[in-house]
Design a protein around this nucleic acid. Sequence first.
DNA 1: TTAACCGTATCACTGTTATAATACAGTTGA
DNA 2: TCAACTGTATTATAACAGTGATACGGTTAA
Lengths: 124, 124
Amino acid sequence: MIDFKDFKPEDGSPIYVQIVKHVKRNIAAGAVADGEEIISRRSLSALLGINPNTVQKGFSILEAEGLLCSHTGAASYAIVSKETVDRIKAEMLEDDISSVITSLKQMRLTKDEALELIERMWSK
Amino acid sequence: MIDFKDFKPEDGSPIYVQIVKHVKRNIAAGAVADGEEIISRRSLSALLGINPNTVQKGFSILEAEGLLCSHTGAASYAIVSKETVDRIKAEMLEDDISSVITSLKQMRLTKDEALELIERMWSK
DNA sequence: TTAACCGTATCACTGTTATAATACAGTTGA
DNA sequence: TCAACTGTATTATAACAGTGATACGGTTAA
């Protein structure tokens, strides 16, 4: 079950990209069962208060990546093998962590300073 | 002296936003002296291979935030007090780290898993 | 003085993002 | 059956991002 209640499109990046990332993070977290029914495009657009076309754009990307299965008239379903979960998780972690490391290094932080800062901010 | 040689606009975010962030990270790193002359808009656009207007957009944001001083005809200069450096650094670290923590938590990583992963990826 | 630089401003153009209003076809359950 | 859902598609509109070209006025150093 993918939870969209905590989804807040306020980032500078396009909403449909954020939808794709949100679903992928849920998959990486192991929160999506294989064959699980996905919320409909219309329902999600109403829930998030955004245009159906924007949701459709995100969902079509997920389908193109083989994470979603759609058929006209019927609900959509998730396709998530164990291999998929591992691959998506590795990709997301690689992206997130390498980008923050690049940023922190640009600010001349040492590894120890970075680790200490992250440890201190983790529980906030 | 702000180094733009390692600046590669490949992120999905607007180039002018990336320019603003790049300058701020250099300020946070203590790499920018107060009153230091900044590369001209035309030179930077030529160096990065982007449009002068895109550079202008980024620079005007930096000026609006009080980090830059411009006058028609003359070069631009950095304005960076110690307080500015501290404030910018705190802001950048807060943004970068809290966003990565949010992502990692969404993927159900524990603090220890996260720290170990970051430590392992730091030197790559 | 003057040529070469600087910042600033404007216009037109393309592509992307997001919205809005429809429409059509297939599925599902009462 | 049929109403209410589903996915899919099209068209139009607006705003924004980025490019390209051009122009104006001020500064600086030879």
